[in-house]
């Protein structure tokens, strides 16, 4: 059984599931560090997934699809910024509204644009081709994992490191951290923390949009209602657990993505689908519980 679970094709499937969670969680990390409690990752992801299909369908290019997803995510980030930062709405309330808005908008537009309900699949949706890396792809085990993946996977890996450096050495990264820790001090220094937080929300939206693109035009080439299916929440948990630190975030996302991928895998073993579907959420809950417990113990 273990052979069946952990063979090369299983490993090769892991990046597909890690990528959306990782991208969304990196976006969430920017908000977390900027002091914006954003639990609207789910909605931003869903919006991205839909507009990736729109872009890819009408242009025939997955890159245009990804760009559309990125812009859709940023639009939701801008709406978040407008209502939370400028109008002073509570972050949780605005997040809930963003999630509902994305759910409503995507189903509404699905019917308005494509005139279908539930799901839209069409050969004209241009998905990402796999990136094959010469030499690397011939190495056993490592080859299938690191070669033949979607460009977004490589982007997400690069972003982990980029974000780490960004927080440590970039002016905006420094200001984002300051906005999260002591915004009053940032303001006294002459920088408006609200602008910094707004930029963080836009960046977060962009990354969540790409996460959605990974779901709809990279893993499969279709859009289904509520396609993000709770992955945005898993990303939220990953952000909370790591307090927005890129490297720990990478490993948590890797774990959650692997379980997601595993749950897909074990469906073939005769387990009822409901139980395999439950696995990622259960794993998230268990990790969350275990780490919270550990933190509580360590404190006292």
């Amino acid at each position: 059984m273990f052979d069946l679970l952990f063979d090369a094709s299983f490993l090769a499937s892991v990046p597909r599931f890690v990528t959306p969670i990782l991208l969304a969680a990196l976006g969430g990390a920017i908000c977390e560090r900027a002091g914006v409690f954003n639990i609207g990752l789910e909605g931003m992801m869903l919006g991205g997934a839909f507009f990736a299909v729109v872009g890819a369908y009408f242009s025939g290019s997955p890159y245009v699809g990804a760009l559309a997803a990125l812009l859709a995510g940023m639009a939701l980030g801008a709406i978040f910024a407008e209502f939370h930062l400028r109008r002073g709405g509570d972050a949780i309330v605005v997040s809930i509204a963003i999630n509902l808005l994305a759910a409503g908008m995507t189903t509404f537009l699905l019917r308005a644009i494509f005139d279908v309900a539930g799901a839209f699949r069409d050969p004209a949706i241009a998905g990402f081709a796999r990136v094959h890396i010469p030499v690397l792809e011939d190495i056993p085990v490592l080859g299938p994992v690191f070669s033949g993946q979607s460009p977004l996977f490589y982007l997400s890996l690069a972003l982990v490191y980029a974000l780490h450096v960004f927080f440590l050495r970039h002016r905006l990264g420094l200001r984002i951290r300051a906005a999260g820790e002591n915004p009053t001090a940032l303001k006294a220094g002459g920088v408006n923390p609200l602008w910094v937080q707004a930029i963080a929300l836009l960046m977060c939206g962009a990354l969540c949009g790409l996460a959605g693109a990974q779901l709809s035009i990279s893993n499969v080439n279709l859009f289904v209602e509520n396609m993000s299916a709770g992955r945005g929440w898993i990303a939220v948990v990953a952000v909370l657990l790591t307090r927005g630190r890129p490297w720990p975030l990478f490993f948590i996302a890797l774990l959650f993505g692997a379980v997601d991928s595993l749950s897909f895998r074990v469906q073939g073993l005769g387990l009822p689908q409901q139980f395999t579907d439950m696995m990622p959420y259960l794993a998230t809950l268990i990790v969350l519980t275990a780490l919270s417990w550990w933190r509580l113990k360590r404190q006292s």
Binding site: I79, V94, G104
Partner: peptide, 19 residues
């Protein structure tokens, strides 16, 4: 499309919540 209700709910909450 009846999903317009969901969109409008979100819009209403966005505008009202901040108040």
């Amino acid at each position: 499309p009846k999903e317009i209700a969901l969109v409008m709910q979100a819009v209403i909450i966005l505008f009202v919540a901040s108040r």
